[in-house]
């Protein structure tokens, strides 16, 4: 009575077909990543060394290291996050914990979604108009970081909002019913439970910001500077722009150099993504409800 019927066999075959199809799609997805990494390592791996990371470019950027660019990127990204994370987290807390469902919060949510969809070159032009010219910061780290901050803001807000919304309402109700204020509830219960998600979102944002070229190109990043920036009002070199420059703008660059720069850039991003994923896994193991 438990033998396989013809219909069972047919259904099984169909299910196998779909399963295989999905597997192939998945593998296709990984392929570009592997090819990119493979190419970078094969062609640029040879130039990577401590010296490459920590010395200045020489010979009209056709030789030497990438230190000022590396240093500049760390500067730009840190400052951008220093601005966008507090702002974004605060806005997200307001939107999901305080604001009710009304036309005002809907309008803000709409604005955030649209801000997230603005192309980075438009952010760049906005940055030039607002920070470089209007506020008079000139082309500087400050102007570039502010531009990056504006660009990352919607993503920080959305990631934070999602983590806050993932905290069950029952926890909040428990607090309110004991007479806790909104803020006491947020500080003692909601934030501690949402912090892992928020941090993950922020780290992912770091990796995305690291690779951005357009927003910093006109607002604060320089082709070549033989010295490190001393304040936020100086210009700086940056990894993404440096890659663009050595790959397309400078004649006589040895083939391996751009690949080497790209490899460092991609590694930075991958390392940060891995940290973020590891972090998420760790914290998910920690919390149980």
């Amino acid at each position: 009575m438990f033998e396989e019927s013809a219909l069972n066999a047919r259904n099984k075959k169909i299910q196998l077909l779909w399963r295989t199809l999905f597997l192939v799609m998945t593998l296709l997805l990984i392929l570009p990543v592997l090819v990119i990494l493979g190419t970078l390592i094969a062609k640029g791996g040879s130039v990577i060394s401590m010296e490459f990371l920590f010395t200045y470019p020489t010979d009209g950027m056709t030789a030497g290291g990438i230190f000022p660019a590396l240093f500049g990127t760390v500067w730009l990204v840190s400052l951008a996050l220093l601005i966008s994370v507090p702002l974004g987290v605060a806005a997200a807390i307001y939107l999901s914990e305080y604001a009710g469902e009304n036309w005002f919060s809907r309008l803000i949510n709409l604005a955030i979604i649209n801000l997230a969809g603005v192309p980075s070159i438009v952010h760049a032009l906005f940055g030039v108009g607002a920070f470089v010219v209007f506020f008079g910061f000139g082309t500087s780290i400050l102007a570039a970081s502010l531009t990056l901050a504006i660009m990352t803001l919607p993503v920080v807000i959305v990631a934070t909002k999602e983590s806050l919304d993932a905290v069950p309402l029952a926890f909040r109700e428990a607090c309110w019913n004991m007479g806790a204020t909104r803020w006491q509830t947020i500080r003692k219960v909601v934030l501690p439970n949402a912090i892992s998600g928020i941090l993950t979102g922020v780290i992912l944002e770091v990796s995305r910001t690291t690779g951005e070229t357009a927003p910093i190109m006109f607002t604060g990043a320089a082709f070549f500077l033989p010295f490190l920036p001393e304040s936020v009002f100086d210009q700086t070199m940056a990894m993404s722009l440096h890659l663009f420059v050595v790959a397309t703008q400078v004649p006589g660059v040895p083939d391996a150099l751009p690949y080497g720069v790209a490899l460092v850039l991609v590694s930075m991003v991958l390392i940060m993504n891995s940290i973020s994923i590891g972090f998420r896994v760790y914290l998910r193991g920690q919390k149980k409800w």
């Binding site: 926890f171 428990a174 309110w176 019913n177 004991m178």
Partner: peptide, 17 residues
């Protein structure tokens, strides 16, 4: 003050994590 004087217990136990 109302919440302090009047405690509430729910259908689903909702201890804090």
């Amino acid at each position: 003050q109302i919440r302090k004087e009047i405690g509430m217990v729910f259908q689903r136990p909702n201890p804090l994590p």
